[in-house]
């Protein structure tokens, strides 16, 4: 019996896991070298890359319909509104 067609193979999962560990090592090492705002920006960027890998492969968005993908990014859309409106206030206070 074959695997469900809508899921990644163990080989793909293992490769993604290896990439995640590599990115974790990069996050840890770079935080020791690059400090200040650029270090924080790099740390967040690497977190976004890791999350994207987890969403696409472990949470199988790569194998889902467009509608499910839309629901998956909807939460981040609303979160971006929270961030945008919050900082539109805090950054413009006198």
């Amino acid at each position: 019996m074959n695997a469900h067609p809508s899921s990644p193979s163990p080989k793909v999962l293992t490769l993604v896991f290896a990439a995640l560990l590599g990115l974790l090592a990069l996050s840890a090492a770079s935080s020791r070298v690059i400090t200040g705002p650029w270090g924080s920006a790099l740390g967040l960027f690497l977190a976004v890359v890791k999350t994207t890998l987890i969403f696409v492969f472990f949470m199988r968005l790569r194998y889902q319909t467009g509608l499910v993908r839309l629901f998956a990014v909807a939460g981040f859309f609303w979160l971006s509104l929270i961030g945008l409106l919050t900082f539109a206030d805090y950054l413009t206070r006198g």
Partner: peptide, 19 residues
């Protein structure tokens, strides 16, 4: 479970790696 993992992926640089 994967989602809760992702939350930690963001907590890690925000709490442990600020320099």
């Amino acid at each position: 479970w994967h989602f809760v993992d992702c939350v930690w992926v963001f907590l890690y640089p925000l709490l442990y790696l600020v320099r």
